[in-house]
């Protein structure tokens, strides 16, 4: 089986926003419809501080609350474990937005339909470049690949960095964070 996932190494992220903007190009998103959100954590006190930037996008949960609450079946888990939204089925009830524990869904203000990181469904087809947020990141923060293949880059990096989902035991997220 293939189960796509991603490693986000926040130790390298400087918060330049390139991933978010690149994603908006690729997916033709409105300006107020980003798939990536950033959280900054500052600890310590001047002059000894620590600052971390955590980019977040749909965690592609295996145990996805957004899918189980969607009344129309628009949100569903597709092949390769990617959580997809059928925009032609979405009525825009926003139930999935309320159910997503990470608040990583957005509504398209023009169509009223809900959207979120697509894990670049098309782009992982053979011969295509990786997800745009991955290839656009100058710092090499992101690694994309098959979590079920222990030899994939992403699996090896996860082992090497001891990365874990943002919240363990919550939704079986497919995005791992090295922090």
């Amino acid at each position: 089986m293939t189960r796509y996932g991603m490693l986000v190494n926040t130790r390298k992220c400087i918060g330049c926003y390139a991933c978010r903007e690149a994603c908006q190009h690729q997916n033709k998103l409105l300006d107020n419809e980003p798939f990536i959100r950033y959280e900054e954590r500052v600890t310590g006190k001047f002059p000894t501080t620590d600052v971390e930037m955590v980019p977040m996008q749909c965690m592609q949960c295996t145990d996805a609350p957004c899918v189980s609450v969607c009344p129309t079946g628009a949100s569903h888990i597709g092949p390769d474990g990617i959580v997809v939204i059928d925009h032609g089925r979405c009525i825009g009830c926003l139930y999935c937005m309320a159910a997503c524990p990470y608040q990583l869904r957005v509504r398209n203000e023009e169509t009223g339909a809900v959207d979120k990181c697509r894990f670049c469904v098309a782009a992982v087809k053979p011969g295509e470049a990786a997800s745009n947020c991955v290839s656009a990141c100058p710092m090499g923060v992101r690694t994309f690949g098959d979590l079920d293949d222990p030899e994939s880059n992403v699996s090896r990096e996860i082992r090497a960095t001891g990365a874990k989902p943002l919240v363990e035991g919550l939704t079986e997220a497919a995005i791992y964070y090295a922090r």
């Binding site: 925009h87 032609g88 089925r89 009525i91 825009g92 926003l94 509504r107 169509t111 009223g112």
Partner: peptide
């Protein structure tokens, strides 16, 4: 439910 409102068949 705007997307449905615009496409009632949904």
């Amino acid at each position: 439910a705007k997307a449905g409102f615009l496409n009632p068949l949904r």
